[in-house]
């Protein structure tokens, strides 16, 4: 059994009104403190390279993506959000995706695809906003997923650093 030891209130505290005034003073001071609200659409959420946003495909300098449509990300995806159809190509890598769709409504932003990728083709970007009026509009195809390497560079460096640990 717990016996709560309550402090005996002083006479001043039992008068009640002085304590109310003290509370009022505190709230009045609060009115002049800096405010913490972020005005979202105008002031976007700050992101870092650790931010795990929506997955995007990194476009290399020659305009191609590194993906060889091995299907590892497709297999790693716990939400079955990724669909890949491969095809042959004359380029050195021999295979490339014909179709690379990510259903952003299924994607849970876990980052397993990024971890699974052996070719440094897919990365978690810092893009967080996702809105559309139809479900179909939120199934992103290859063209919508492509981002230049430069925009993804902080994340790419971060992933390399993490992967170098083991």
């Amino acid at each position: 059994m717990v016996v709560v030891q309550r402090r005996e209130l002083t006479f001043w505290e039992r008068m009640y009104l002085p304590e109310i005034v003290r509370g009022l003073v505190i709230t009045f001071k609060k009115m002049f403190e800096p405010r913490v609200t972020r005005q979202y659409p105008e002031q976007a959420m700050p992101t870092t390279e650790v931010t795990r946003g929506q997955p995007r495909l990194a476009v290399k300098d020659d305009g191609n993506i590194a993906c060889v449509s091995c299907g590892l990300c497709e297999a790693a995806c716990p939400a079955y959000a990724i669909t890949i159809d491969g095809q042959e190509t004359d380029r050195f890598i021999e295979r490339e995706p014909e179709r690379f769709d990510i259903d952003m409504l299924r994607c849970i932003l876990c980052g397993f695809c990024e971890e699974a990728c052996p070719k440094e083709a897919i990365f978690m970007s810092n893009e967080l906003e996702l809105a559309n009026t139809t479900r179909e509009g939120l199934v992103y195809d290859m063209e919508q997923l492509k981002r230049s390497t430069s925009t993804l560079q902080p994340r790419i460096d971060y992933v390399r650093k993490i992967n170098d640990r083991w």
Binding site: T27, K30, M31, E33, P34, R35, V36, T37, Q39
Partner: peptide
């Protein structure tokens, strides 16, 4: 507005 001020909101 005042309640927002007191609670550090806008």
């Amino acid at each position: 507005k005042i309640s927002a001020r007191i609670q550090l909101r806008i």
